[in-house]
């Protein structure tokens, strides 16, 4: 697959480069590529490289020591736990929302779609704040929670809630356009052929959205594990108890323990790279058949 896609990419760009009407002079092309690559190097590549370079600056031993330290290990465990709760919940929500919005017509659909996007435009700090206002000691449910000895803020439930909030739209947002584009004919055909609702979903809908779903889950997971602002507000920064990986990075950094901070950050960077790899695979997979079609069109013209 890889090689075919690579040549295909080249072919697409070349289509513009051979056409006299869509081609720029070589100096324009060269300058634009240079500007883009300089921008890329300065703003994207350099920070990524820096994370790893700083993490290994004091050698492998310091690096690994920073990662196996008890506080770091408990931060890793907590991060995994929070993502393991938040991502499946948002996955189920995403599928339900996409099913309702993409496969049915109802009044207020546009508004609902907008509301689902809402958490994206809310500052993560505010995402944390709202849960403090609800469940904090002075919050609406604060007295009741204290009375029943339930801790949400400065405890794991608060971290989970804040994380669910900031990652709320990811899966739904990925699935809605995809399922809308696919229409409802295939599902209707399945129903006409006698399939039940669940059978239709499992055998017809799910196979055709699985790549988009995977992409949404991957992005959701990356944000869930990497969220900083929202969890920072609700965590209370209790070492070994309510510190996720990004918060651990902050603590280590503020203690001037740079090597350890970057070592922990390098885990997050690895997660980011993995996310990008999976995302690229999903995209190329999803794009490929489409492109082949475009190419054959181009030839027949």
């Amino acid at each position: 697959m890889g090689a075919a896609v690579a040549t295909h990419w080249a072919a697409r760009a070349r289509r513009f480069e051979v056409n006299a009407a869509t081609r720029e002079p070589a100096w324009v092309k060269g300058s634009l590529i240079t500007i883009a690559l300089a921008f890329f190097g300065l703003f994207l590549l350099l920070p990524l490289v820096t994370v790893f370079a700083e993490a290994f600056r004091k050698g492998w031993q310091v690096y690994f020591a920073a990662l196996v330290e008890p506080d770091a290990l408990s931060a890793i465990a907590l991060t995994l736990l929070v993502a393991a709760i938040a991502v499946p919940l948002n996955l189920v929500f995403g599928i339900a929302a996409a099913w309702a919005i993409a496969k049915f017509d109802f009044r207020g659909k546009q508004l609902l779609t907008t509301l689902i996007d809402l958490p994206f435009s809310v500052s993560p700090v505010i995402a944390g704040l709202i849960f403090v206002l609800l469940f904090g000691a002075q919050g609406w449910f604060g007295p009741w929670l204290i009375e029943h000895d339930v801790k949400i803020i400065f405890a794991v439930p608060g971290l989970v809630l804040a994380t669910i909030f900031v990652t709320f739209p990811f899966v739904a947002r990925e699935l809605i356009p995809l399922m809308e584009a696919q229409g409802r004919e295939e599902e209707e055909a399945a129903i006409v052929l006698g399939a039940s609702g669940w059978q239709t979903f499992w055998r017809v809908t799910l196979p055709s959205i699985k790549w988009g779903l995977l992409y949404g889950v991957i992005l959701c997971n990356a944000r869930a594990m990497g969220e900083f602002g929202a969890v920072s507000v609700v965590s209370g920064h209790i070492r070994g108890r309510t510190n996720t990986l990004p918060l651990q990075v902050e603590i280590l950094y503020n203690e001037y323990n740079f090597a350890a901070a970057f070592a922990v950050a390098s885990l997050l960077a690895l997660l980011a790279l993995l996310t990008l790899v999976v995302k690229s695979l999903v995209e190329w997979r999803g794009r490929q058949p489409l492109n082949v079609g475009q190419e054959s069109q181009g030839v027949s013209a």
Binding site: V18, N19, A20, A21, V299, S300, A301
Partner: peptide, 18 residues
Amino acid sequence: PSGCGKTTLLRIIAGLES
């Protein structure tokens, strides 16, 4: 018929294709 090259010829005359 489609694919016979007629459009390509027209585009070459126009200079849209070389």
